[in-house]
Design a binder for these strands. Structure first.
Lengths: 215, 215
DNA sequence: ATAGTACGCGAACGTTCGTTCGTATACTCG
DNA sequence: CGAGTATACGAACGAACGTTCGCGTACTAT
């Protein structure tokens, strides 16, 4: 590297460094899990030093928590925010499912869905990191469920249990992610998409709500 | 278990040690993944030494392969073999689903389904271990699909695509495993069980075939 | 009986892990 | 301006990693 003795005022924002590092960290963790996310590998991947990362995040647990938070922001920006353009209920529900599938299919993170990749190696050891991953997933599940409930209240869907229907829908999206990674194919997304549409149609979803799934 | 402890037994001792170690190894890997399965921890868990494990399995990769094979045997013994008592088709399909849910719910491995726990941290790095895990899962998926096809051929089920229906069914069982581990609750198995029954009923499954799910 | 093979363990190897310390530099604030 | 804070790095730490070697011991094979 060249001389860092430039009196420029860019040193103020360590947040910029943090963001660069977290961008790599979320990607690395989606591949190797939150355990496999080591400070050494992250340092070389981000072009910095181990001690820099240590001082920026204070500890490995701090790094993991910041990584989960960063991944959650991406998740929200990619899935939740765009769906707010659709009215609450069936339309927003379908938009959420479509966005979730696209977020996995487009490999926003190299290892597919960040939370699917990290949930496994986290729910065996208690601590704030597990709590953070759990909270992200349960909030996501709950938000889907809320849209199902809203759709039922609006007469757009008919089913015995909103939570059961939400369970079925998320099962399909997550298995599409898992099997796509397993087989290295995008076909599971099409299979899951058709199953989602069929399931919603059976629950009484209108055709124009389901159209969102084909995009 | 100890049927073959003949006094003149050849290297029964070595095989016995291997079996003891693999029993702990499958359990450990279901919790920490095949990467988190370290020789040191396994040694203390099995009450042996690091070097013993190294000589018995030649390398970490050898240990991982043996662990996957051992887990696969348990999977087969718990899920496939008992289902052979049912006739090919809808009955055996339902028995397989019921056994798979019980295998996860009963925590045959402490970390839930072995392959769900290890698939994540394996499908990002090529090699024989990933191939072994992949083969186990694809064989399982294919076997389920075969039963769906047999059920269709026998007029027990009606659906456009056997593979799509099998996809939906396995989605539910795997998500039940994942969410049970996430929430520390057995309720997801009941939700998934009801969804499985409902889906099969919609495909024309007979009542006596579905009765198997309630056991 | 002799040679050969498979265990089983302790000890050490080189590497990587997370963490800490010292130091240099840049920005913020009293 | 000076005190304090934050970034960034190199160096080093103890611990754990996978692996290898040597040395016994038990069993098999010829």
């Amino acid at each position: 590297m060249s001389d860092r003795t430039e009196p420029d005022g860019r040193r103020a924002r360590g947040d910029a460094s943090r963001n660069v590092i977290l961008e790599r960290a979320t990607d690395l963790a989606s591949i190797a899990g939150l355990d496999g996310l080591t400070i050494g590998r992250l340092a070389t991947a981000a072009g910095s030093s181990k001690s820099s990362i240590a001082t920026l995040f204070h500890s490995k647990e701090g790094l993991q928590l910041a990584t989960v938070a960063a991944a959650r922001e991406v998740f929200t920006a990619r899935i939740i925010e765009p769906a707010r353009a659709e009215p609450r209920g069936a339309h927003r529900l379908v938009a959420l499912l479509r966005n979730a599938m696209a977020y996995s299919r487009d490999r926003v993170f190299s290892g597919g869905c960040f939370f699917a990749a990290t949930a496994a190696d986290v729910d065996s050891k208690p601590g704030p990191v597990r709590d953070a991953v759990r909270a992200a997933l349960t909030d996501w599940y709950r938000y889907l469920e809320l849209q199902v409930e809203a759709a039922i209240a609006a007469g757009e869907l008919h089913t015995d249990s909103a939570s059961a229907l939400a369970f079925e829908l998320v099962s399909l999206t997550e298995h599409a992610n898992a099997r796509s990674l397993l087989l290295g194919s995008t076909e599971p997304y099409e299979v899951a998409g058709r199953a989602l549409a069929e399931r919603l149609r059976a629950a009484g979803a209108s055709r124009d709500a389901l159209e969102l799934l084909d995009q």
